[in-house]
Design a protein around this nucleic acid. Structure first.
Length: 478
RNA sequence: GCCCCUAUAGCUCAGUUGGGAGAGCACCUGACUCUUAAUCAGGGUGUCCCAGGUUCGAGCCCUGGUGGGGGCACCA
């Protein structure tokens, strides 16, 4: 394998050497373009354009090539007679993949194609490795993820997907800004990782001589800001979880967290519904979409179902009045497989994901979770917390609650949690609790999985398809 | 961590029952003054993922490993 690469490399290295011998720099600098390749050009225009050679068709004394930039492509035509010896010799050493700047006049070929008649060209970058095949492109999933640049070069729809990702994030900011939310940034390196379940990545700061963790969520810092007097804030955050990797989980992922003082989880339900509908209309131009063969209708209002009712409907289990052990027993006696000693929150989420994807792929809010599963949420009553999760097409997309602002209760519930949690740096965050002791206004808080939302909008089966450089195991040495 | 699938040329892929490693594109040599998946003539460029094993003989069968994909588990 390396043998043949080096043979193809050899060929091009030889050309590169010859170009240098001729006193030409194969890696040119700034090149002034008159037009991007999606621009309107007319016959007779003198243009100066640049791009990568995608195809090359020699015809003896002439040649055609297709030049491509980010926006589009154009054909160029070379007549060696009129190009002169030096430029002619250089042109014959060009390959598919090279970057070129050309100057010349636009004309129409016999078949009517808009073409630049090259009067002068500049080699802007010599390519040493062959590009993926022109017709079938690059399919190998591993290469597509590992060498995303090749994927972007050969698969136009991938580039479009990431354009959409970028537009979505811009729209989302604009929408929140218009609603009066302030964008803030909080620490990624935290000494006490909190605000979610999940195992953190651990690291170390030399000067301070202290252990630090990459955040698993920004939640506890954002709530400190509520204490500080900000009333409507959000953070578009990269968070990190040191756990299993799957079609829905990348170790680093993008999330939106929103907090609004004097609001509650009902307001968050309305907010996330309005936001997602807005994004769908703006970016997709429709409210009915198809995800992996399933019809998803985003038309509001979305279905709301209490957790108790959902478990009743889906499994015939009444979970009211239960603690976690009784709940586990009930699920088991209803014939539901529960691994381990007792069911976990995620176990329940997985159950809901599977059942809801079959029965109702359209958005469904599951509301009012058992309180023991929600240590940071305000209780509605003894058994139930004011929390919801949003499921769309069998995927947990958002999670929100009325924030618990009673410091004494918060300390107790984190302690209980810590007891259940055991090791792993999951101590209660004392400074966070202290902040609550100064007083935090009641608030609604929301977390929304941005990668997953983009999966939904782009009909992508895997989270790796919507992250430019997804995490993979270390491959072979190059 | 467990289970299933998968790995052949730069790319996309074929490879029969275990018997000479192939095709298209790309690439190389030559021809060609409007082609556009240019065409024509010639050329195969390979650690069949890795390491063992069975066999007279392994791309193919067996065992172990590695990468990738999917599922399960884990993810207050």
């Amino acid at each position: 394998m390396t043998e043949i690469i080096s043979e193809m490399l050899q060929e091009r290295l030889k050309k590169l050497e010859e170009i240098k011998q001729a006193g030409i720099n194969p890696y040119g600098g700034k090149f002034l373009r008159s037009h991007a390749l999606d621009a309107k050009m007319e016959v007779g225009n003198r243009v100066s354009v640049a791009g990568r050679i995608k195809q090359l068709r020699g015809h003896g004394k002439t040649a055609f090539a297709d030049l491509k930039d980010e926006k589009g492509k154009i054909q160029i035509y070379v007549s060696f007679d009129s190009l002169g010896e030096e430029q002619g010799n250089l042109f014959r050493k060009l390959d598919i993949g090279d970057f070129l700047g050309v100057e010349g006049e636009i004309f129409l070929t016999r078949t009517g194609e808009m073409t630049v008649k090259v009067e002068k060209f500049t080699l802007l970058s010599k390519s040493l490795r062959p590009l993926p095949e022109k017709w079938k492109g690059l399919k190998d999933v591993e290469t597509r993820y590992r060498q995303r640049y090749l994927d972007l070069i050969s698969n136009e729809e991938v580039k479009e997907l990431f354009h959409l990702r970028s537009r979505l994030i811009r729209e989302l900011r604009e929408w929140l800004d218009k609603k009066g939310f302030l964008e803030v940034e909080t620490p990624i390196l935290q000494s006490v990782p909190g605000g979610a379940a999940g195992k953190p990545f651990k690291t170390y700061q030399d000067t301070l001589e202290m252990d630090l963790y990459l955040r698993i969520a920004p939640e506890l810092y954002l709530k400190r800001l509520l204490v500080g007097g900000f009333e409507k804030i959000y953070e578009l955050n990269r968070s990190f979880r040191n756990e299993g990797i799957s079609t829905r989980h990348n170790p680093e992922f993008t999330m939106l967290e929103v907090y609004e003082a004097y609001a509650d989880y009902e307001d968050m339900m309305n907010l996330v519904e309005e936001l997602i509908v807005h994004l769908a209309e703006k970016l997709l131009g429709k409210k009915k979409i198809v995800y992996q063969g399933k019809e998803v209708d985003l038309t509001p209002p979305w279905k709301r179902l209490t957790f108790r009712q959902a478990m009743q409907d889906l499994y015939g289990v009444d979970i009211e009045e239960e603690d976690i052990k009784k709940l586990t027993d009930k699920l088991r006696s209803a014939g539901i497989k529960v691994e381990g000693n007792e069911v976990t929150r995620t176990g329940l989420v997985r159950l809901l994901e599977r059942s809801l994807s079959a029965t109702s792929p359209s958005p469904t809010f599951i509301i009012d979770y058992p309180a023991f599963l929600c240590p940071l949420a305000k209780k509605k009553n003894e058994k139930v917390a004011e929390r919801f999760e949003l499921f769309v097409a069998g995927c947990e997309l958002a999670n929100a609650y009325s924030e618990l602002n009673d410091p004494l209760e918060q300390r107790e519930r984190l302690k209980i949690q810590k007891g259940e949690e055991g090791e792993d740096g999951h101590l209660p965050d004392e400074d966070f609790v202290r902040a609550l002791e100064y007083g935090m206004p009641p608030a609604g808080g929301l977390g929304l999985g941005i990668d997953r939302l983009i999966m939904l909008f782009t009909n992508s089966p895997s989270i790796r398809d919507v992250i430019l450089f997804p995490q993979l195991r270390q491959g072979k040495n190059l």
